[in-house]
Nucleic acid binder design. Sequence first.
DNA 1: CTCCTGAGTTTACTTTCACATACTCAGCAA
DNA 2: TTGCTGAGTATGTGAAAGTAAACTCAGGAG
Lengths: 169, 169
Amino acid sequence: MDARTEAQPYAGLDPRLDRDTSNCSIARTLEIVGEKWTILILREVWYGSSRFGDFERVLGCPRNLLSARLRMLVEEGILATETYKEPGSRSRPKYVITPKGMDLVPAVMGLLQWGDRYRADPEGPAMLTRHRGCGAHVDAQIYCADGHAVEAEDIESVPGPAFRMKPAD
Amino acid sequence: MDARTEAQPYAGLDPRLDRDTSNCSIARTLEIVGEKWTILILREVWYGSSRFGDFERVLGCPRNLLSARLRMLVEEGILATETYKEPGSRSRPKYVITPKGMDLVPAVMGLLQWGDRYRADPEGPAMLTRHRGCGAHVDAQIYCADGHAVEAEDIESVPGPAFRMKPAD
DNA sequence: CTCCTGAGTTTACTTTCACATACTCAGCAA
DNA sequence: TTGCTGAGTATGTGAAAGTAAACTCAGGAG
């Protein structure tokens, strides 16, 4: 049997511990990108879309939700608005990604590679990601600050500076 | 000005192109882990929880949703059920992570580190992730198959084997 | 002046989701 | 045989999301 089938949780927190999970960074990120359409909008931005009509057409997202999600992403500093001007038309807004938005790339790459592995069509993925320099396939990996590649099983999670217990009732 | 503020989309797809996005690996992964509570359940599994009551207590998730999410995660092969037995009680089910579930770690690490960077409390994150071997902090990074660290700006996305256009109306 | 276009907003309706609460069920214990 | 406990299922209500269509608004084109 594959050794990996013996995968174990990577932290040893007592599950009876009444941790306060309200300041979890995963949950806080999901408050933004966990809404439907949001990551798909970002995907289209990375693929080159920038205009309201582009998003609407390729995603099939309702206009009111698209409008709400774009506004939220701009408020959060993940996208920024600029203007573009087609010859013969007036200036219109477009949406471009910010550095804060680009910092979501590792997370989205993680989702992408899991989907490529477990949920792709038989013939393979719809899109491939390559290193612009060398053309080799890229994916998200876990590394430690000392430069070692880290297996998921070898990650341990420990309470950090903002760790709190649930307030007593 | 920081060079990173000039971040550009990493693909050059024509935004007018009527791509069929129904087989996108990101979207397919989100069908599973994009539902509320699902990633938070996985987080608790990684942190050491395995029982229905543990999840309910720490997450505050409604029981019917917790039940539905756990069933889905088992059906998808991300969790598996085993049994445990407390002395003086009958056997009860518990939930353990599978290798397929562990493969979601890079994606969740990506979400975690974005939250740590942009949405943590002033004093820092609630939890820290370390390499079990050397104790150094770990995070998700993008690497290419040739072993180069890759900046998000240097990723390009190109059509893959399952790339399709939208069926004509 | 009127039409056209892209980018929205508004409205009305339907469906799904979230949440709290109550209920069930199996087996150990007393 | 009654109660207790963990792990669920069932249900009722309200909020949110999805859908579709109409409407607005600014400015260039004809």
